[in-house]
Simulated scan of single mutants.
Amino acid sequence: MAMRLLRGILSLLKWGLCAIGAVALIFTAMIATPLQRPPELRSVSDSVKGVDFSTLPALERFQARDGTWLGFRHYAPSGQPTGRGAVFIHGSSGSSATVNHALTAAMATRGVETWALDTRGHGASGTRGDIGYVGQLEDDLVDFVAFLRRTAPDLPLTLVGHSAGAGFALRVAATPIMQDMFVRTVLLAPYLGYDAPTNQPNSGGWANADIPRLLALRALRKLGIDCCSELPVLALAVPPNSAKILVPTYSERLMRNFATRGYRIDLPALTHPLTIFGGAEDEMMISSRYAEAVQAVKPSVDVKLIEGVNHMGIVTNPKAVSAIAEDVATRGAGQS
């Protein structure tokens, strides 16, 4: 009897180990799936045309809490100072030195003291395409604002973000420890999360995700195994040979952090005014759905669409640049 019971236990153990091995092989195969780079998206590449980079401020650096030196550019206000400030967060792949310079320079010419940050993983900040942990971008932004407060202790700051950077700005605006650092948040063509009704399929050809790898890493996290988050899971449609300027891929932890937690989660937590600007001709987002999507969750969100403007045009098109710069210059002291 005892031998029969032992044989039964050993048989169960054998099949259990086989099942674990099979699952491990499946996870390994999913994680090993190669990330496919999408072809260059010309509407993004062509957005650089017409941007005057001769006025781009010099790169400066500050030291984050982990000792890493992160890059930023400071735009001193010209003309009549408004007594307002702004921190600008670029979109996916970009930096403080890319096409958003057209908008950040315009805000400064309207008297808004403006800082454009190289978010960690981009530009001159850290390892391209990767960060150390989810939450590090928030830590960096807290450190950056503390750095700014040494010279501008009382300046009311508006947080402005574009595309994926707008999703991150929404994440920040909903975080209790950070939301009071900014009197207002402005989102430009925001990416509101993978399940938002405002997304064009595959972001209009801009982004290609490694779905098997993402699903495997998510399943492992639910099992309490947090591994391999440094692996690339998102490829962006940047031009060939542009890696010195643009970031071609994101690690899993950077992709998760440089985004909203989900607009249905973050919007209810807002305590300060929020405005969304979208381009009516946006090829990555369905801008006509912004108002319905966000106001169903947070009716007080202000949504503005600009005709004749695409995704990158929201930071380069003169009509969009003028409207947004004027908005930040005149509503940056907490007005809704």
Rank of each mutant, 00 (worst) to 15 (best):
residue 188 L to C: 08
residue 188 L to N: 00
residue 189 A to N: 07
residue 190 P to D: 12
residue 190 P to W: 12
residue 190 P to N: 12
residue 190 P to L: 05
residue 191 Y to P: 00
residue 192 L to Q: 05
residue 192 L to N: 09
residue 192 L to Y: 10
residue 193 G to H: 00
residue 194 Y to F: 11
residue 194 Y to E: 12
residue 194 Y to D: 12
residue 194 Y to N: 09
residue 194 Y to G: 11
residue 195 D to C: 02
residue 196 A to R: 02
residue 197 P to I: 10
residue 197 P to Y: 06
residue 197 P to E: 04
residue 197 P to W: 08
residue 198 T to V: 08
residue 198 T to L: 03
residue 198 T to N: 03
residue 198 T to R: 00
residue 198 T to Y: 03
residue 199 N to D: 12
residue 199 N to S: 06
residue 200 Q to Y: 04
residue 201 P to E: 05
residue 201 P to A: 11
residue 201 P to R: 01
residue 201 P to S: 06
residue 201 P to N: 04
residue 202 N to E: 15
residue 202 N to C: 03
residue 202 N to F: 09
residue 202 N to A: 15
residue 203 S to D: 12
residue 203 S to N: 10
residue 203 S to L: 13
residue 203 S to A: 15
residue 204 G to K: 08
residue 204 G to V: 07
residue 205 G to S: 09
residue 205 G to T: 07
residue 205 G to L: 04
residue 206 W to L: 15
residue 207 A to Y: 00
residue 207 A to L: 13
residue 207 A to V: 13
residue 208 N to S: 15
residue 208 N to F: 13
residue 208 N to K: 13
residue 209 A to N: 11
residue 210 D to H: 05
residue 210 D to K: 00
residue 211 I to Q: 13
residue 211 I to N: 09
residue 211 I to H: 05
residue 212 P to L: 07
residue 212 P to H: 04
residue 214 L to Q: 14
residue 214 L to T: 10
residue 214 L to G: 02
residue 215 L to P: 01
residue 215 L to Q: 13
residue 216 A to I: 01
residue 216 A to V: 01
residue 216 A to D: 00
residue 216 A to W: 04
residue 216 A to T: 01
residue 216 A to K: 01
residue 216 A to N: 00
residue 216 A to E: 00
residue 217 L to Q: 04
residue 218 R to S: 15
residue 218 R to A: 14
residue 218 R to L: 13
residue 219 A to M: 13
residue 219 A to D: 05
residue 219 A to Y: 02
residue 219 A to C: 09
residue 219 A to S: 15
residue 220 L to I: 07
residue 221 R to G: 08
residue 222 K to F: 14
residue 223 L to Q: 09
residue 223 L to Y: 12
residue 224 G to R: 10
residue 224 G to E: 10
residue 225 I to M: 12
residue 225 I to N: 02
residue 226 D to I: 14
residue 226 D to C: 06
residue 227 C to F: 11
residue 227 C to L: 14
residue 228 C to W: 10
residue 228 C to N: 09
residue 229 S to C: 05
residue 230 E to K: 02
residue 230 E to W: 15
residue 231 L to Y: 07
residue 231 L to Q: 11
residue 231 L to N: 05
residue 232 P to Q: 08
residue 232 P to I: 06
residue 232 P to V: 04
residue 232 P to G: 07
residue 232 P to S: 07
residue 232 P to R: 08
residue 233 V to M: 05
residue 234 L to V: 14
residue 235 A to Y: 02
residue 236 L to C: 06
residue 237 A to I: 03
residue 237 A to W: 00
residue 237 A to D: 03
residue 238 V to P: 00
residue 239 P to K: 04
residue 239 P to H: 09
residue 240 P to H: 07
residue 240 P to Y: 08
